[in-house]
């Protein structure tokens, strides 16, 4: 028998710090596999942000710059402007990208910055301990919305990818989810498409991936996937949001 699937070379073979059942590990693997399959690890620079995924530089087996909370798109801009031949992507969570980093991400899209954005959305701050995020659903409980998110007090969940897709500089935007083998494969395809568009010299692209946070949602991993599909997905429908064919 032959080995058909195993640990990708584009990841460092160390245990990850993520909680049991957290899908960051799956998304890391998808990004790493695409880079391995495209044979571009030698010219890839990942930009880590702040949040649970801030230690992704420990796992990705290629160059990484660690930026600050929300600032990854700006740092990616600096790297990409110096090395336009490199594949530059940011890996950001929703607390990072949709709150403190709103200006940076929007303006990277506005500039048509030739970077790829891997945006992992689970509707909550993970690393800091389950606080309310701008993506938190109405009535959803978090440590800073202990009675459920009040829209009267804090407004409504922000739809970042739709907003990014509105910008002319954005060539591709898709929302996927990690809930089944089929959706995992779809997510991988979306990541690959984003990277290929960048290598082809097209503009900004974003793949938003609906994810879970079993620990801070207070659920078992399997239960959290079900909850994600029944709740998060109703607010953030998966599917293609902007295709490069729409770009004139």
């Amino acid at each position: 028998m032959d080995k058909v699937s195993s640990f990708p070379k584009t990841l460092v073979d160390v245990p990850m710090h993520y909680c049991p059942g957290c899908t960051h590990g799956i998304i890391h693997r998808l990004v790493a596999e695409v880079i391995e399959e495209m044979e571009i690890a030698f010219k890839t620079v990942g930009i880590a942000s702040v949040g649970c995924s801030c230690f992704c530089y420990d796992y990705f087996n290629f160059d990484v710059v660690a930026s600050a909370h929300g600032r990854a798109p700006a740092t990616a801009t600096g790297v990409k402007r110096v090395h336009p031949e490199c594949l530059v992507f940011t890996y950001q969570g929703d607390g990072d990208l949709a709150a403190i980093g709103t200006a940076e991400i929007i303006h990277a899209a506005v500039r048509g910055e030739k970077i790829s954005v891997i945006f992992v959305n689970n509707g909550i701050y993970g690393m800091t301990g389950g606080q309310m995020a701008p993506t938190t659903l109405p009535e959803m409980k978090a440590t800073t919305s202990p009675y459920g998110r009040s829209t009267a007090l804090t407004g409504y969940p922000i739809k970042m990818t739709e907003m990014l897709a509105l910008q002319d500089g954005c060539v591709y935007a898709e929302r996927t989810k990690i809930s089944s083998v089929a959706t995992i494969n779809k997510t991988k395809k979306a990541i690959r498409k984003s990277f290929e568009l960048q290598i082809a010299g097209k503009g900004f692209s974003v793949v938003e991936i609906l994810s879970t946070c079993p620990t801070n949602w207070g659920m078992e991993p399997l239960e959290s996937i079900k909850w994600m599909e029944e709740n998060l997905e109703t607010y953030y429908p998966v599917g293609l949001i902007k295709d490069e064919k729409e770009v004139k």
Partner: peptide
């Protein structure tokens, strides 16, 4: 060379971080 006007001072300094990290 490249001159880029950022959307804020915050963004500008992180572009500097990226450019510097890239060796320029």
């Amino acid at each position: 060379g490249t001159f880029l006007q950022a959307e804020s001072e915050i963004s500008a300094i992180y572009m500097v971080l990226g450019g510097a990290a890239a060796g320029a």
